[in-house]
Design a protein around this nucleic acid. Structure first.
Lengths: 325, 325
DNA sequence: TTGTACGCGTTATCAA
DNA sequence: TTGATAACGCGTACAA
């Protein structure tokens, strides 16, 4: 790879001059400017961003920590985030934590060593204390860390309420919420609060089932749902806290020959692409993933520019009624 | 962020000494070693990888260019690749090309500027010539560029053959292949070659439908499949070149009240997570995504170490029979 | 066992 | 309008 020095020599000028035409700074005669440009083309010169970043104290790198990009929600989130980042001149370092505490910590350290300008954190197994060590702009998804760290989320309580009310309105008498592990300190837990409150308020029998920390094993979902039905054969409504879980529920109902939506109604969450793709199409609570991604990037960039940011950023959810209710 | 200089001063030694304990080079007394370690902890010192990379001429960064991480196949691929990269000390710069030519080129330049040690290329809209400009280790997914660039793929011809034969064996009389755009120079096109050859050989009526370049629009799939059935109402077998397309086919059959697998049989491709998640579960051709990811990383690392690599790396596919046939 | 000095590729300051 | 030089943070000869 040619360096600025090679360009300078070949063009018969000094590196200063080359740097000037590169960055459009100061006065340069048209003649030398053209000569330098020509040599840059000839050599296919690309400025070394490592050296630039080192000098400037800014890398234009952003770390993205998620459980895994193979989960539809995080895959879609990552795609949007990368897109917005790219349009703002930032690059994404991808980190799949698998929801393992050690990995999250290790990744954070790695990102700091690589001088990222900020971190988007959407995996939350580490303790709140760990965040104080990160002296970097952070934006969090779905978790409130402390007063200062801005977080992006959607209205989880409202989502839980919409889902639960819909099931009851449709005539369900005994409902269950299958959600992530409640020991993780996530705003998503508000879905279950809403579920419980709504069911109690309306006098409907209800159950909550938590998945294990490790999110992505669909086999696990299937086992849990199978157990749920064997314990509660009259269950007629399921609020699944992701479209993936909802799809698993559909599968089990099919196995148990329970008609959807006649015998069992199901509401999913997220409205990822699969929700409207599977058969029957999943009634779900839509999170505005694209808006959330955009907002996260904006909040991060504002912090990098030392502008003020609002800490709480909760976007509205909407009910997407389809075929499972 | 504290630098090596800060550590040196606080520990009462020079930067050389700190660098030595950091990299375990040369002789150091236990006393100073411990002192330096202690100061590093106190200051929460993290070595600046930008500076290290600049000095070493090696960034430990790898660029990953895919159409979009929100597509299940590429999401799973990315997750595996990032995992293997991480275990080998490499970090992934994520690039979603959206299958746009300009973006691919732009991303390649960006990656070069950032001094990545190699590129994994799984998005293929650019011309073969463009690759000669990339003087970097590359591994390609599913495309043969020229003699020298190693590529990872699975046995597409065999996959097409397995799928087509299965449909015919099960009794289909008129079949269609819905595949990606054949104008892209991909090894995946061999699936269609196999489809055509097998159908002709066995004397079965067949059709090929290509999607538009822009891969991910499931609405597009649905429209195409709807058109397909309206033109060929007696169609009773579909070979879908991804599980996503297969899911769309299921959806349309459901709309048209065609029973699966009695009236229409469907075979998907990839065996991504959704294949066994949806209802009915998709019979599909399994690509060994995990092995392919691992192999790609290994091939890349070998190139970086200037070891010899085999150019053609084709892994076997397997038929996963499920409920759509 | 530890320190001095230089270079990695770039940009900004100051001089010419 | 252009050039020489220091600095960004780090690692390694070479010297002490």
């Amino acid at each position: 790879m040619p360096t600025i020095k090679d360009v300078a020599e070949k063009a018969g000028v000094t590196v200063t001059t080359v740097s000037r035409v590169l960055n459009n700074r100061g006065y340069i005669s048209e003649a030398t400017r053209n000569k330098v440009y020509r040599v840059m083309k000839e050599l296919d010169y690309q400025p070394n961003e490592l050296a630039r970043s080192l000098f400037r104290g800014k890398s234009n790198l952003i770390g993205l920590i998620i459980p895994t990009v193979s989960h539809p929600f995080f895959g879609e989130l990552s795609a949007y985030i990368e897109g917005y980042a790219h349009s703002k001149g930032y690059k994404i370092l991808l980190c799949n934590s698998q929801l393992e505490r050690e990995k999250e910590i290790e990744y954070i350290d790695m990102l700091k060593r690589h001088q990222v300008d900020g971190i988007i954190m959407a995996s939350h197994t580490i303790e709140v204390d760990e965040y104080s060590k990160v002296n970097l702009p952070i934006v969090t998804f779905d978790r409130r860390i402390k007063e200062k760290i801005p977080y992006v989320s959607s209205d989880n309580y409202q989502g839980g309420k919409l889902a639960t009310n819909l099931l009851i309105d449709k005539g369900c008498k005994q409902i269950a919420h299958i959600c992530g592990n409640l020991s993780l300190d996530l705003l998503a837990n508000k879905r279950n609060e809403a579920f419980v409150a709504t069911a109690q308020e309306r006098g409907i029998k209800f159950h909550t089932v938590q998945t294990e920390i490790n999110v992505f094993e669909t086999k696990q979902y299937e086992r849990l749902i199978l157990e749920l039905f064997s314990e509660h054969p009259n269950l007629d409504g399921i609020f699944a806290s992701s479209d993936l879980i909802a799809a698993s529920a559909i599968k089990i109902c099919y196995q148990l020959k329970k008609e959807i939506p006649d015998e069992v109604r199901i509401v999913g969450y997220d409205d990822t692409n699969i929700a409207s793709l599977v058969t029957p199409q999943i009634t779900t609570i839509r999170q505005p993933i694209e808006m959330m991604s955009k907002l996260a990037m904006e909040l991060l960039i504002k912090q990098m520019n030392e502008e003020k940011v609002t800490v709480e950023n909760i976007l509205p959810v909407t009910l997407q009624e389809r075929e499972t209710t």
